[in-house]
Lab assay of single mutants.
Amino acid sequence: TRVETATETAWISLVTALHLVLGLSAVLGLLLLRWQFPAHYRRLRHALW
């Protein structure tokens, strides 16, 4: 049971790290898009909202 718990903890930390990385890359990508294509971003936002 001790090994299982350790594996579970490792998986949880791995998944958390993955989610953090994905979230950060998504935010960075959005910022980059907004910085590179302001007109396109505004049009996209206008279409979405």
Rank of each mutant, 00 (worst) to 15 (best):
W11N: 06
L31C: 13
R45W: 00
S13M: 11
T1Y: 13
L30P: 06
T9C: 06
Y41L: 09
V27I: 14
T5W: 00
S25V: 12
L20Q: 04
L24F: 14
A6Y: 01
H46K: 09
R42W: 15
L31F: 13
Q36A: 15
R45S: 04
G23F: 13
R43E: 04
R43L: 08
T1A: 14
H46W: 04
Q36F: 06
L28E: 06
F37S: 07
T5F: 02
R43F: 07
I12Y: 08
R42Y: 15
E8T: 06
F37A: 03
Y41N: 05
L20K: 01
L32P: 05
A10D: 06
V15Q: 02
V3F: 05
Y41S: 11
T9A: 11
A10T: 12
I12R: 07
T7L: 12
A47C: 13
T5P: 00
E8H: 01
L22R: 02
L22A: 12
Q36T: 15
A47F: 09
H19K: 03
E4I: 10
F37K: 03
T7F: 08
L32S: 10
L32A: 11
T1C: 11
L14M: 12
V3M: 07
T7K: 14
T5K: 00
W11S: 02
S25P: 02
P38L: 10
A6N: 09
L30Q: 02
R42C: 10
L33I: 09
L48H: 05
I12P: 03
L48V: 10
V15C: 04
L48M: 08
T7W: 11
A26D: 03
A47I: 08
W11M: 06
V27N: 05
V27F: 13
L33C: 12
T5G: 00
F37D: 09
V15G: 04
A6E: 07
R42E: 08
S25D: 05
R43N: 06
S25A: 13
R34H: 08
L32Y: 02
H19S: 02
V21K: 03
W11P: 06
A10Y: 04
T16S: 10
T16L: 08
R43I: 09
A6F: 06
A26F: 12
T1W: 09
A10K: 13
V15I: 11
R2H: 13
R42Q: 13
G29A: 14
L24V: 13
H46Q: 13
R34N: 03
L32W: 02
L32N: 08
G29K: 04
L30C: 12
A17R: 04
